[in-house]
Structure formats: structure tokens, C-alpha cells
Amino acid sequence: MPFDEKFTWVSLVVSVVVPGVYFMVVLGQLGGGPVGQIAYQVPMLVAIGAMILVTIAGTILVGIGTGVAIELSGSGSTEDIGRTDERDREISRRGLLAGYVAASVGAVGVLAITMLGFDHFWIANVLYLSFVASSLVSGVVKLVAYRRGF
């Protein structure tokens, strides 16, 4: 499996788990009073920071794991870790484009609820959801391209 594909898996898993925990914590407070009183700001900042840090840590661990596996099995070369070629770059472009489209659709949604006068809580969370959806769509498109070809 190319290192970029492994990185995509790490990114995808993090993009599911971290926002999943965030939305469970924050949306779990719905119904307990006005949404304007839900303190989503700190959990959202923590979730964004956690996504970045966990992705970096996961990528490092996958790199180390790949290196150890290569040394133990004796097949392959540690020089392959981090090596990318034109196929990786083309897959990355496709993923970025799909993610951009998803983020754009989300942005239109944010624009709509802003115009309709929704609370800041919903505006911030739909915007965050758009970023998450962008990351998920990008990751899925890249993995499908790696697995099925294009």
C-alpha cells in the first residue's frame, strides 16, 4: 500500500472519530435550553486541534510501523516510505477537487442559514460540518481511486 494511501486512511479515520466525538458532546446538549447558551466554542477548537495533532501523530506512527514491517519482513525498501509519484499526485488532485466541491456545497448551506437568521451555534457547526464533509469526501474519493483505479 502506498504511503499516501496509508496517510489517507489515517486522515479518514481521524475525520470520522474526532468530529464524531465532538458532535456527540455538543449536540447531546440540545434540548437542555436555548442553543445560544451551549458552549460549543472550546470543544470545537479542541476538536480542530485534536484532528491536526492526531493526524500528525498517526502519520508518524504509520511511517514507523511501515519501516519496522519492512525491516522484519525483508521485503521492500524503507526508501519507499514517503515516496510519491505521478499516480499519487493525480489521486491527490482528484481528492482535493471532490473535497472542494463538498466544502462549497457546505458553504452555500452556511450562507443560507445565515441569511435565514439562524443562531451562531448553527452557523459555526454547519461550517465545521462542511470542513469535516470536505475531508471525508476527499478521503473516500482518494481511496476509491487507489483501490479501483481511474
Binding site: 500500500m1 502506498p2 515516496r83 510519491t84 509519484d85 505521478e86 499516480r87 499519487d88 483505479g149 481511474f150
Partner: peptide, 22 residues
């Protein structure tokens, strides 16, 4: 040819058409 082994596999399995240069 300066690519990953996975790209060679993808080419052989007709899952990827390489660039004209490759």
C-alpha cells in the same frame, strides 16, 4: 522508472494509465 511498486502493479492490472512520459 522512478515510481512506487504499487503504481507498477496498478499499471499491470490496467487500473492506471501512465503518462506518456512514464
Amino acid at each position: 522508472i522512478g515510481v512506487t511498486r504499487q503504481t507498477v502493479i496498478a499499471i499491470e492490472q490496467a487500473r492506471y494509465s501512465p503518462s506518456i512520459e512514464m
